[in-house]
């Protein structure tokens, strides 16, 4: 853009903050009204107006009143379409923000509701994240727009500035309004890719001792007192002595007690991503876990709710 163009845009942004994307953040729901809806002709609108001008001059030149009437009719319909475009946006309300979960680096799915109390609104378009979404809004039935945002960091992710616009009805005018919602969505921390398993729980005395189970662990020589049904008769027949099947039960998964302070020599971010990986692993393997952070403690539990609480706390670590 030439410098003059840039200067004009900069001036416009200073003078008319809501005309351009500079609009300040505001909480949802956002109600569109006349002070924030702008309208300009599209390229097609400009071209069509030029054509109308040519038609007007032609009709006047040939003193052809029927043609003049036709031109006036088209011109008036064009002007009317400008008002209809405005009315399509006027009174819309944007709210109902819902977000999925995502860890930093993944795409987060976000949905917004667009509602209107009167009139069916045709062809409402929302430009967000380099894509255009089109919906029809029926009074009393909010339309939902879903989109995915890229995430980089854990914590609150503010929604990008979005442009709600329409070219309805004739495509000759574009009415638009910038949305800059104040409502952020939460991004969980990115778990580290590789790393150690958590430290072993303290005070677990019988750790490592096999318990009787159904799973075959090894064969050993018979010792007096072994139960008979554990003797491997078939194998013993080919051996000089009796062999006994040593059966073992898998040890129940240990509860993980995850502690911020147990990790030494790591900076905060590494601790967060390690803890995030452990919480992820614990949830995936069906373990119970507790999480101790410098400013909070989540007692031993399992399940989605516990998971989201822990991840939220991790995401919001300063």
């Amino acid at each position: 853009m030439p410098p003059a163009g840039e200067r004009i845009v900069a001036w416009a942004e200073r003078r008319l903050p809501s005309l351009t994307r500079m609009r300040r953040r505001e909480p949802l729901p956002i109600q569109l009204h006349r002070r924030r809806i702008y309208i300009v002709p599209t390229g097609f609108g400009v071209g069509f107006s030029l054509l109308l001008a040519v038609m007007l001059i032609g009709a006047l030149n040939y003193a052809n009143n029927a043609a003049l009437m036709l031109t006036c009719l088209l011109g008036a319909a064009t002007a009317g379409s400008m008002l209809v475009a405005f009315r399509t946006l006027n009174g819309l309300s944007v709210g109902g923000l819902r977000a999925g979960t995502a860890r930093a680096g993944e795409l987060i799915r976000v949905s917004l509701d667009i509602a209107a109390s009167q009139r069916e609104r045709m062809a409402i378009r929302l430009d967000v994240a380099d894509r255009e979404h089109v919906v029809v809004v029926i009074p009393g039935a909010p339309a939902t727009i879903e989109f995915a945002l890229p995430t980089d960091f854990r914590g609150w992710l503010s929604l990008p500035r979005m442009r709600l616009h329409t070219r309805w009805p004739l495509g000759m005018f574009r009415a638009w309004s910038w949305l800059n919602p104040d409502n952020p969505v939460l991004v969980y921390p990115r778990p580290e890719a590789l790393g150690p398993t958590p430290f072993e729980p303290e005070g677990d005395a019988d750790r490592g001792r096999p318990r009787a189970g159904d799973e075959l662990a090894s064969l050993r020589d018979y010792r007096p007192g072994d139960p008979r049904r554990q003797i491997a008769w078939k194998l013993s027949a080919r051996h000089h002595g009796l062999l006994v099947k040593d059966l073992e039960q898998p040890a129940p998964k240990e509860d993980w007690r995850l502690d911020w302070d147990s990790m030494h020599g790591l900076d905060d971010e590494s601790r967060i991503s390690r803890l995030a990986r452990w919480v992820d692993e614990a949830k995936d393997s069906g373990r119970r876990w507790s999480l101790r952070l410098p400013d909070g403690y989540f007692d031993i539990a399992q399940g989605d709710e516990h998971y989201h609480r822990c991840m939220t706390a991790l995401a919001l670590r300063p």
Binding site: D130, R131, V134, V136, I138, A143, T144
Partner: peptide, 10 residues
Amino acid sequence: RFRLSLSRAP
């Protein structure tokens, strides 16, 4: 009633 949003690259 929901209308699914039709997405397209501009």
